[in-house]
Computed example of a mutant assay.
Amino acid sequence: MTDTKDCAALQAREHARCAALMAGDAEALDPMLADDLVHIHLNGMADGKASYLAGVRDAYRFRGLSRGDLTIRSYGDFAVMTGPLSQQLEVLSTGQVMDVRAMTTQTWLRQSGEWVLNTCHSTPLQS
């Protein structure tokens, strides 16, 4: 059964993660990510932690980011979060601006009392 304290902590952690992305703050983002992170993007490309953080630092600027209603199911020190994602980001090398609308599934692990993002997989929403 999902614990309401866990849900609140996970929502706060996701809010902090989104704020770090908007600020382009890879240092703040780093401790929110599991060392064995797998982040699968809409195009099917996958990043580990190092390449994901490098993208935040050097490849993209987030211009807007919002999450809709999130469904959170926690199982002790493991949780699954699903919900919509809307973001606008700029590809720094080209100046291209991308509008993203997706449904995202994330898995979170509690390590040393803190929730860290372990896996993220997004799929585009049909317009």
Rank of each mutant, 00 (worst) to 15 (best):
V80H: 00
G44F: 03
A16D: 15
D35K: 07
A50T: 14
R17T: 14
L42G: 08
G83D: 03
A20K: 07
A79D: 02
A23L: 07
L21H: 11
A26Y: 05
L53Y: 01
G64V: 00
G44T: 07
H15P: 08
D35A: 13
R57P: 12
D35I: 05
K49I: 04
Q87V: 08
R61E: 05
A28F: 02
S51L: 10
R63S: 04
S51P: 10
D77G: 10
R67T: 12
Y75N: 04
R57L: 07
A34Q: 02
R67C: 09
T82W: 02
A54H: 08
A79F: 00
D58A: 08
A12S: 15
H15I: 14
S66W: 07
S51F: 04
A16K: 13
A20C: 14
D35R: 12
R73L: 06
A50D: 12
A54G: 13
R61D: 05
G68T: 13
A16S: 15
T71I: 09
Y52K: 10
H41W: 02
Y60F: 13
A46D: 00
D30W: 03
A19Q: 15
L89V: 11
R13Y: 02
G68K: 09
G24F: 00
M81Q: 05
V56H: 05
A23V: 04
P31R: 10
A59H: 10
D58F: 03
G83A: 03
V38C: 06
G48F: 00
N43V: 02
A23F: 01
P31Y: 04
D58I: 02
Q88N: 01
D69P: 15
C18I: 11
L70Y: 03
A79S: 00
Q11S: 13
L65G: 04
S74R: 09
S51G: 06
S51R: 11
A20Q: 04
F62C: 14
H15L: 14
M22E: 10
A26T: 11
Y75D: 04
A26R: 05
A54L: 12
D69M: 12
D25E: 04
G64Q: 11
G44V: 05
M32A: 12
Y60S: 12
K49W: 00
D69S: 15
T71V: 10
A16M: 14
A16V: 10
Y52A: 12
M32G: 08
H41K: 01
T82H: 05
E27I: 09
R17Y: 13
A46Q: 03
D35W: 00
R67I: 10
E14N: 15
A28Y: 00
